[in-house]
């Protein structure tokens, strides 16, 4: 097997790393240990002070490109820089989080350097010295095991699929002087709905369906807020215009895998189940004992969500206090 390190491309916004970055680093460390190679982290658009903590997550070396052009993600500039780093470092494996940005950049990078890419990996194993990854297809109804042909192999890992492990490593910082190249994109502004938690990265998702009966989701919103979670919706709730499309969980919406998924008034159409069945613990509240959501749930409550959910909120509030 040709030697070469694992290169983890990190993602930060306003000097804070995304959770999936820690997941990618931790998984990168596990791969590096099995392969007997090192782990190098790449930090773009942030300084040494921000980057140094990555040593705690297993990075032997941390390459820092603190160029202000890279502060906001620009597909072309970021790809230029990463492609340069790849040609210099010659990694065997590149690992990145399959966030919006990570998917965008990894597809562009793969075409640029003609490397194999697997997007949304949910499992990574080593088989006879080769990486074998599992990725969901058709919204998670099917899984496919894939091996790569060629190096470097690029893995974009699905948020919330890999565990974060602290692992003290040298974390030696190297400052890079990078050539950003030409950019055909100009950042104008971000319109942020602050405080809203990204569905695909949330630890807890509380979702409402047709059983909500209208656009007032406050009863489940309260529970989501209390748990520090995100609000989701079924396709029927979105079709009714009760919630924006961005909240839709399912095969034609977002695929989520939180620690806890609470489905309220969701019957569990197949396309919805595809979007949430990889959640670790699923609780379903539904009036209909025959609802198919119960087939994918760990715990079921047959009852009126407007009665049950406030009681859950109340009970959990006691714990939080």
């Amino acid at each position: 097997m040709s030697q070469g390190d694992v290169l983890a491309i990190t993602e930060q916004s306003d000097n804070v790393f995304r959770k999936v970055t820690y997941e990618a680093l931790s998984e990168g460390r596990r791969i590096a240990d099995s392969m007997g190679c090192g782990l190098t982290a790449v930090v773009l658009g942030a300084g040494e002070n921000v980057a140094k903590e990555l040593g705690q997550y297993g990075a032997d070396r941390i390459l820092v490109a603190d160029n202000h052009v890279l502060n906001e993600y620009m597909a072309d500039a970021h790809t230029n820089v990463v492609a340069d780093i790849v040609s210099r470092e010659k990694p065997a494996t590149i690992i990145v989080g399959a966030s919006t940005q990570g998917k965008d950049m990894s597809a562009r990078l793969a075409a640029r350097i003609n490397a194999p890419l697997a997007i949304d990996c949910v499992d990574v194993r080593i088989d006879n010295g080769d990486l074998l990854v599992t990725r969901p297809m058709y919204g998670g109804k099917i899984l496919a095991d894939i091996v790569f042909d060629g190096k470097p192999q690029i893995l974009a890992i699905r948020p919330n699929s890999m565990s974060i492990a602290e692992h003290a490593a040298a974390g030696a910082i190297e400052i890079l002087d990078v050539d950003v190249g030409e950019t055909n994109l100009k950042f104008i502004e971000k319109k942020l709905d602050t405080g809203k938690i990204e569905l695909t990265e949330a630890d807890v998702v509380v979702a409402g369906g047709r059983g909500m009966g209208g656009s007032d989701f406050s009863v489940i919103e309260e529970l989501a807020d209390l748990l520090g979670g995100a609000l989701g919706a079924s396709r029927s709730a979105v079709d009714e215009d009760w919630r924006p499309l961005a909240d839709q969980v399912g095969q034609t919406g977002k695929v989520v895998s939180p620690n806890l998924y609470i489905a309220c008034g969701i019957s569990g159409a197949i396309q919805h189940l595809a979007g949430m069945s990889s959640s670790k613990v699923v609780v379903a509240v539904n009036k209909d004992p025959e609802a198919s959501i119960f087939s994918k749930a760990d715990y079921g409550i047959v009852g009126d969500l407007f009665e049950v959910v406030p009681l859950i909120t109340e009970e959990i509030r006691k714990l939080v206090k």
């Binding site: 104008i188 971000k190 319109k191 942020l192 990204e198």
Partner: peptide, 9 residues
Amino acid sequence: IEGGNLEML
């Protein structure tokens, strides 16, 4: 972008 937010370019 993440969280249903918008980035203008």
